[in-house]
Design a binder for these strands. Sequence first.
RNA 1: GCGGGCGUGGCGAAAUGGCAUACGCGGCAGGUUUAGGUCCUGUUGGUGGCGACACCGUGGGGGUUCGAAUCCCCCCGCCCGCACCA
Length: 847
Amino acid sequence: MAPPERGALSYRTSGPTKRDSESGSVSSDEQYDPRAVQDKWQARWAELEPFTAVETDDGRERRYALDMFPYPSGDLHMGHAEAFAIGDVPARFWLQQGHNVLHPIGWDSFGLPAENAAIKRDSHPAEWTYANIETQAASFRRYAPSFDWSRRLHTSDPEYYRWTQWLFLRFYERGLAYRKGGHVNWCPKDQTVLANEQVVGGHCERCGALVEKRVLTQWYFKITDYADRLLDDMAGLEGHWPERVLLMQRNWIGRSTGADVDFTIEGRDEPVTVYTTRPDTLYGATFMVVAADAPLADEICAPEQRAAFEAYRDEVSRESEIERLSTEREKTGVFLGRHAVNPVNGERIPVWASDYVLAEYGHGAIMAVPAHDQRDLDFALKFGLPVRVVVDTGRPDPAETGVATAGDGALVNSGPIDGLPKAGAIARITEILDERGTGRASVNYRLRDWLVSRQRFWGCPIPIVHCESCGEVPVPDDQLPVRLPEGLRGADLAPKGTSPLAAAADWVDVPCPKCGVAAKRDTDTMDTFVDSSWYYFRYCSPGYEGGPFDVEQVRRWMPVDQYTGGVEHAILHLLYSRFFTKVLYDMGMVDFTEPFKRLLNQGQVILNGAGMSKSTGNLVDLGEQIAEFGVDVVRLAMLFSGPPEDDIDWADVSPHGMQKFLARVHRIASEVTSPVGADPATGDATLRRATAHAVSEATTLVGSQRFNVAIARIMELVTATRKAIDSGAGPADPAVREAAEAIALLLSLFAPYTAEEAWEVLGRTAPVITAGWPSADPALLVEESVTCVVQVAGKVRDRLDVPPSVAADELERLALASPKVQEALGGAGIAKVIVRAPKIVNIVPQR
RNA sequence: GCGGGCGUGGCGAAAUGGCAUACGCGGCAGGUUUAGGUCCUGUUGGUGGCGACACCGUGGGGGUUCGAAUCCCCCCGCCCGCACCA
């Protein structure tokens, strides 16, 4: 439908209200239209700047409300609308509570889509990127989150990425950024490498292409050095971050404890070390398995098995990730023609190669204990290798059943550790290995170092120069930023497996900063997750030129009080940001180790039970919704539909209901006739209590992020106020003004335009956002009487109006005196009476 | 397979040991209106009854308790994460 012209619709401010005092009904031909007031308040906010955070101390407490900054992929969509509506609530709440609030906005503006668009349109990624940013910025202004626009940043600005490079160099100095060769994930579509975190189920997280393995030399951040701290510091986030995010990070880091055991290899000087979480089963090891793609397998393979091994290895290298990932696939492998010697019993065991052992984990080799590990058992049964039980779990023989026994029990066939339980045996055997120098306790992680280099153009250049005589040479700080080369555009950026930057000869060729001879720049750019790992620090002092951030400002604002964003970043962005924060702590630049105190993951906006997508046409357009209903309605519908963490199916959302509610709010404001400042103490006591309750509960509910229930409380207050106007105290009662003002103040968090308008209609001048947060008079929260429920055998039989302070024995007497209770008892004796004054009495009859 | 979460009216959801279904949508009835829409009022878990009421009811079964949507055990269903990590 075509939206009415903006501003053409009138809304009632004081016009004639036909009121039928007999029925209490009111009719109206005109209805308040939230769209009509949007431009007016946008202009007022732009002029008054109520959302600008104050850098210097002004006595107010500081709060930092952060939303995950957007990628400028196009205009804002329903997902943004939900996330930013949710993130705006605490920011406005704190502001109205009188705090100095930092609520910034910026753009994560490096990344592949811009580059792909540039290739397609024969243009430069910056054109597409910055045009989209302007589109989103304009939409944001209308959508009206309480942003401090003065702190706006873009990660693709040289003023920003200068400091991304600076941080890279600090990491480099600390040995936390390094280059190494090895197997890497390669996306054949995007023509670039990917971090482990960006591979989901064997596919590229971004484009969905099947990821391949390649052997390449790449830049890494040594996040594994921080594995323990990343894991252990999560204890402090417990209860403040969603449990599932913590769980996902724990699983991702995947710490396991066990032991390294050295096996000698016949005909090899050096022993081979294996990692096991079950050193207690060492006597049950009947063979060893080496990862087929590990150099070790190639090295120790005996000549007579070489042909078989190489054939197998080629087969493995051809097989795709899909095959590797299929669950019920048969074990494969090949004997390497060698034997290893078990360090505790001197037993000779054959060494095999297989793809079920991963080259990158542990030492790329394992001791196989088929009786107590299902994978090893599958392998043993397939190739006829022996199975020896060493833990008596009381379960049937795995060799017979094909089911490995992983449980606890007494050790058997295990020499010095016979009879010990699992835990005791692990401790003892580790000691024995230690004494003999053939093993030691060990910890392993699933987490790998973070691969940060990318063979694409639109990212932050890696500030390193490669010199034939000096090797890797960091670009000196005073030569930062290393800007992206000019002149590359369109087809120049097409992916070709090496970085497009390499084609910019005049950019690549530079003198070595150290020795001055001809050298070449590193042509890779950084993963965009590097850019987003520190942007929230930059917000604290966005124009700062002495470093990535002003240490003093960060000390003032951080850590972030609430971070709002999607759960899709549960591992990637949030793990990297936690890592960066810990490194900055070690550098002495910040005095905290966790960046985000509280995390809220909003749900997704879906339609008809399925995710929205352009290709299927299952789409709701934010712009159309706003044109039809207005910003306030969209925001309120998002927030009212359910808990913020839950998905919203737009098919279940009722914008019309929200529209009706906002019109009711506006009309109440317009009907108030008492003057500003009228003393509410003289007003209707019932309505005053309703107001006090709504204020008190809404405050608690907003604080615990239960926005949908908070809105329900405001709705109840609106209904109570309507009743008071129509059939109670009347529009001139000061309690009605008090209620109407409270409604405007509370509603400001959820429907800011209507709240401002109502506030003005009530004769108030300051913007409502600066008018404070209402407080409830405790005296009004105490009820004059409460309803006590009287149960007989757990069923409600009567209700009594009693004072809240009623004594237990008095209440019991009243309850027993009730005719309804006596009737329900039917003459039966009383076994017991439970009294919870003043709410409930439960009488248990004898039976 | 392993781990975690969830299951409440026609629908989105409230209630975290004490009146189940707040609030909203949708429905129904009435009022206002030339009419429609808007707006206002009432009503709306099921079964039975003219009715006051009665009984049943939070996925299913069992348990703890004076009292369970809420806590415990088993089962069913759905969602999410991980998935050869030795």
